[in-house]
Design a protein around this nucleic acid. Structure first.
Lengths: 217, 217
DNA sequence: AAAATAGTGTCTGTGAGACAGTATCGC
DNA sequence: GCGATACTGTCTCACAGACACTATTTT
């Protein structure tokens, strides 16, 4: 059973938040070796006595290090190898989390631009790049971008979020037609945005869960 | 560093092969506890002294248990928890592998229908279901189905493979147009299939790698 | 009224599906 | 020639992009 030395198993979380200035990444300065003082992804060891699974570990880490609960959090993949951690052969199960709306004040994270986060500890730059790739891919065939917005939003906000993630501009009327057809969102009756011009209808996701769009080859 | 007890870390591989009768799954009978004699996915512990990473572990396992090398193998995800292995809190990094063409004779795998594999050890039924989901999803926006065929194939074979994976029928002329447009395959000049009717042009993938198709929202 | 943003109507080009028609093989 | 499968041409319909137009607010 335990004939083999067990590798280190950790969980790391790529925490992403959308602002007017693009996607931002939540980092935390390491307080001990290896890579002391360097910014790193929030993460930690699995606590086998309290964590139900690695998703549970990810949620615990996000709550402990950023004070955040009830956010979108999905497994990205596992990165492993002899060299990625100087302490020895290690594997880290990576999750990515999306922050809805404004980030909480006083949270213990240092925010850096996700596309240009500077040098991070371990192989964490690679993990962030993989998370952004996943986000872009999934943005084009799911309602994932909606999880970067508050629970309610206008169609313009939703379209701008898709545009930020996909890196392209989308035709407004085609986007409205598509959203209508996909049956993903519903208007919050009577609710309108306040703005300097005509107020916009406010919408919310019909289902809280991530939903993929059908694709044909 | 090692303040926390390390969970068990294993690698399991969902080996899939396409035949006329659909997708088949390669299993292996367990020779020891837990779940002795039960069919299970080929898998094993990470060997930290020889495995470069978990993908390396997966390749080693496939070679050792099925005698197969140089096949498509991609990470599916990591499944973890206190209850999935009676020996204790464990995590398994799951890969799925696609066998090209006819399976090797004498390989040490027992083949069962992938969609109805019977009861497998551990949570392996769940892992297989997740792999089939991934296959279906990825089949609709990548050249993944081609990796279930031999290196060379006819357009009809390729279309039938897509149809098997997607569970739908595809329009023949639209499929040809699409393949032409996607620039994924190239004819092997002068090579024709032999059949009872008009021979078909033989094709191969232009690039050996998995390629995703562009998709707009 | 002007400016600004929200939302609608409609034209058009592209591409997928359908399917008839043509090509090339074995018998 | 006939049957069978491979491949091509073309019609049509659906849908995405473009964009003009209308609607509703603030100043």
């Amino acid at each position: 059973m335990t004939d083999f030395p067990r590798p280190i198993l950790t969980v790391d979380v790529v925490v992403l938040e959308l602002r007017d200035t693009g996607l931002w990444l939540g980092t935390i300065a390491r307080d001990s070796a290896p890579f002391p003082q360097m910014p790193a992804l929030p993460g930690g060891y699995v606590h086998v006595d309290t964590d139900k699974d690695t998703a549970d570990t990810a949620r615990r880490v996000i709550k402990a290090k950023a004070g955040l609960t009830d956010i979108f959090c999905e497994q990205l993949g596992t990165f492993s190898g002899a060299d990625r951690d100087p302490r020895g052969w290690s594997a880290t199960v990576v999750y990515y989390a999306l922050i809805r709306g404004a980030r909480p004040k006083g949270a213990g994270l240092v925010w850096v631009p996700a596309g240009n986060p500077g040098v991070l500890a371990f192989d964490h730059n690679e993990l962030v790049a993989a998370a952004l790739d996943r986000l872009r891919a999934k943005g084009s065939w799911s309602n994932l971008p909606a999880f970067l917005l508050a629970k309610t939003f206008t169609l313009a906000e939703l379209r701008q979020t898709y545009e930020t993630i996909l890196g392209t501009s989308l035709n407004d009327s085609a986007f409205r037609r598509k959203m209508e057809e996909l049956d993903l969102i519903e208007p919050v009756i009577g609710k309108k945005s306040k703005s300097t011009a005509r107020p916009a209808q406010i919408y919310r996701l019909k289902q809280g869960a991530l939903r993929a769009f059908d694709r044909r080859i």
